[in-house]
Write a protein that binds this DNA or RNA. Sequence first.
DNA 1: TCGTGGATTACCT
DNA 2: GGTAATCCACGAG
Length: 222
Amino acid sequence: MSNPVKRCRYFRPWWRTRFRPLTRHRPVAGPRSVLPREFFRAPASQVAPRLLGCVVRSGPVAVRITEVEAYDQSDPASHSFKGPTRARRTMFGPPGHLYVYFTYGMHFCGNLTCEDEGRGAGVLLRSGEVVDGLDVAWKRRGNAVPFRNLARGPARLAQAMGWTREDDGSDYLDSVTAGDPIEGISVGPRVGVANAADTPWRFWITDDRFVSAYRRHSSATP
DNA sequence: TCGTGGATTACCT
DNA sequence: GGTAATCCACGAG
């Protein structure tokens, strides 16, 4: 039993996956700087593109962020638009915290809160590339999931990170670190929102394979 | 690769 | 009681 491949139940060799894991060749190495609280105090639409390429860690799993969406209080599509409620109070809390919500009766999604306390703003983490804790992420997502889809999509990302209701309100200041510089940023309308779908507050890394497929909300006006 | 439809429940009106 | 910041399986081309 000296074969390390067989020791780990959830290890999957890259040649069994649809896409070659870039983590084998582009590891996140060395200490990374933690972003200051002031970083998250800015408007969500400014924080969102700056988060691209950053690495968010939850226990053993770390994800390089490739796609985000910004939401704030003046935004009809935002959970904070109608003011604070019990389920959405985290969004109105201090910046740099994790806001986890439950949607479609089965999925969790995670946001990083922005702006000053009392202002309901945040950045939805839509997609990412798992760069650490690959075995744990695969265990949570299922063995049959292709490497590319481990965290491609907000609910997939939340599942890979292991986020649930209990993580709502956690301070994530020490869990977000700067990443490698990125090539380019694309901007476009947000996904899955019925109101203000055309507000260009969705940001993603141009030509990155770890970006979710764009799908407009079924009842959104064309 | 793309489009379609079903699953399933917390939350607010 | 309707809506929802979604995912997955499946089929067609």
